[in-house]
Design a protein around this nucleic acid. Structure first.
Length: 218
DNA sequence: AACAGGCGCAACCGCCTGCTG
DNA sequence: CCAGCAGGCGGTTGCGCCTGT
């Protein structure tokens, strides 16, 4: 089945919205609602396609949108929900009142993803360093927990920030120290138990929320 | 002051899903 | 069951702003 493009009709405007267009859209929706996005631009007298109107409304003009920087709490929620749900931005956005999927997606790609990648790089450095220590000094009394954790660390990129050895060995890392220390402080978990408890907590939150989270997670 | 490169964000594109006839 | 439509979603793009040289 092939669908016709959204804006197949020539003459429909694209690109940034003007203040006038915003006002027309706001006035129309406040007056008549948005039951039919396809028909809305025509009825409102806008030279836009319905899709463009919907996007503009949901991502920018909606009155309940919270604008401005993300708080530390919001950051942590996004990170945790991303671990649970993956790139399901709308599902994540539904747990952050006033934030849109587009906003969260942008924030992830411009801030959090970069930070996690840095953290991953740091993690592999730490893991390698730790493994070298273990190999070269067999007589050393090594905490078994660290070995298990090191494997876990390497295999699951997403949970790298919660790794306990990250906390133990971060002082070894001279380069990028300040930035990574800061990141570590924010997301520090002392052991995997607390991490798992955290995951259980968020799972319960999702399960008890209005949406059917089990469907979303599966 | 001028330019180049990087970054952030709004907006677009194309696919998927659910609904209806 | 099938086809068509509309809405929703995630990935990607492009433009404007900022910063460094």
């Amino acid at each position: 089945m092939v669908r016709a493009p959204c804006c197949e009709k020539m003459g429909l405007k694209k690109g940034p919205w003007t203040q006038e267009e915003d006002q027309i859209l706001i006035n129309f929706i406040q007056k008549y609602g948005h039951e039919n996005w396809r028909a809305l631009p025509k009825q409102a007298g806008l030279l836009r396609c319905g899709k463009s109107c919907r996007l503009r409304w949901t991502n920018y003009l909606r009155p309940d949108i919270k604008r401005g920087n993300f708080s530390e709490e919001e950051e942590q929620i996004i990170i945790k929900l991303h671990q649970l749900l993956g790139n399901r931005w709308s599902a994540i956005a539904s747990r952050l009142p006033g934030r849109t999927d587009n906003e969260i997606k942008n924030f992830w790609h411009t801030h959090l993803k970069k930070r996690l990648e840095q953290s991953n790089n740091l993690a592999s450095t730490i893991t390698t360093k730790r493994r070298d220590e273990i190999t070269t000094n067999a007589s050393q009394n090594i905490d078994e927990h660290h070995i298990i954790s090191s494997n876990y660390y390497q295999d699951s990129q997403n949970i790298v920030a919660y790794h306990p050895t990250y906390c133990h060995y971060q002082e070894d890392i001279q380069s990028n120290k300040e930035e990574n220390m800061q990141y570590s402080t924010n997301y520090e978990h002392k052991d995997m138990t607390s991490f798992n408890n955290d995951m259980v907590f968020w799972y319960n939150v999702l399960m008890s929320s209005g949406n059917n989270a089990s469907d979303e997670i599966s």
